[in-house]
Design a protein around this nucleic acid. Structure first.
Lengths: 210, 210
DNA sequence: ACCGTTCTGTGAACACCGTTCATTTATTGC
DNA sequence: GCAATAAATGAACGGTGTTCACAGAACGGT
């Protein structure tokens, strides 16, 4: 009777368990240390069993990638709730950097590994954490522009792209380039915010004449 | 007699040849495709022979890394010769991005692979392409500041760090994240320059550097 | 010219890796 | 209980980095 559903559920549970253990390994030892054999060992199955639930290692990586990005989005969204545009950007930057530094291996997996991995993240135009996260930034710059505090002749989309690139650069250089251990990432991020905001007059001052 | 020097020279030549072939493989197929066996095959020696000239695969990678960075420096220096501060920054940004896009695999190797690789690049305080390249950027921001076109309360060093991070972010997101194929990297880089250069208005710090 | 040393080069092996597939084991419907 | 179906596996294939005992060539001294 209900045994069909139970089997399906058990199947899903094992799949989930595999992913959880894989996530643990990645966070603890990095993506490079995630091998099918080690993973199989950790979940106490034979290596071949993993292939009943995932096409191959890349499929597991992709799934972890998607979830990692969702975590990032979950961290960005509260920061985006802030009303004041400059403050909002500041909080977004802080949240982004904090995420990257707290979960370096996850960050590496999502943004610095094979291009194939992040391909899916931006595939669906509206759905997916990729476009959603980006939209959060774009809205922040729209708000900034509405307040007259952004460069006038640059679209919010482009500003958001450059801003994201700046954040990503800060985080990823911290993660890979030992030469960038000088200034703390949080400070760099706030400098980025400052230089992204045109004319740093107090926020609620009169709108700039255009 | 001179046979000792000749042997030494031959040794160096083989070492050099190994590196050249390794470089070709990396540029053509990426660092991941560089295997000791394939490399040994290409130089027509047994795999074990490679270990007479390099401690291990990482040692080869490190060497390629150093040279890659030197190439980048060689591209940046002409751009740094420009007198006008804003124009100089613009040319530096363009050169950096062009290098990254033209030699993606080299760029990946230098800036996006194992942190151990880039460790050496910034080790020597003055020598080495790492600090030298960074110094080029710092000087550009010093010039910008002298011309009164940079944020006043931020040091050139920090501005250079954020600028570099921005450039790196642009290039690396282009290389890995398929979602960033919207705006061309060159355009983003110029937007970065624009937002890094404070307009004629003097900047007053927002008080919120938490 | 020979011999012993020293250096260059190698084949074979070890321990891993991702992946496949025939085979066994467990579970189900009847 | 039995046949059918699903889950799990052991063994294998070809690949990886790396090591090491061994062979061969080149050398300096006599």
């Amino acid at each position: 009777m209900g045994s069909a559903e139970r089997k399906e559920r058990q199947r899903a549970e094992l799949r989930e368990q595999i992913l959880q253990v894989a996530r643990d390994i990645v966070m603890k030892e990095g993506f490079g240390a995630l091998s099918m054999r080690k993973l199989a060992d950790a979940v106490e199955y034979a290596p071949a069993t993993l292939y009943l639930h995932f096409e191959n290692r890349d499929a597991i990586a992709r799934e972890l990638c998607v979830r990692g990005f969702q975590e990032l989005l979950a961290v960005l969204e509260p920061a985006a709730a802030c009303e004041e545009p400059v403050e909002r950007l500041s909080r977004l930057a802080a949240a982004y950097v904090a995420f990257g530094l707290k979960q370096p291996e996850t960050y590496r997996l999502v943004f610095m590994e094979d291009p194939k991995l992040s391909a899916d993240l931006f595939q669906d135009q509206d759905e997916g954490a990729g476009p959603k996260s980006f939209a959060v930034l774009v809205r922040a710059f729209e708000a900034l522009k509405a307040a007259g505090q952004a460069l006038e002749d640059t679209t919010p989309v482009r500003l958001a792209e450059v801003f994201w690139a700046g954040l990503h650069g800060i985080v990823s250089l911290k993660l890979t380039c030992s030469g960038f251990q000088g200034t703390p990432a949080e400070v760099l991020a706030q400098t980025l915010v400052t230089s992204s905001v045109h004319g740093s007059k107090p926020a609620r001052a009169t709108r700039r004449t255009r």
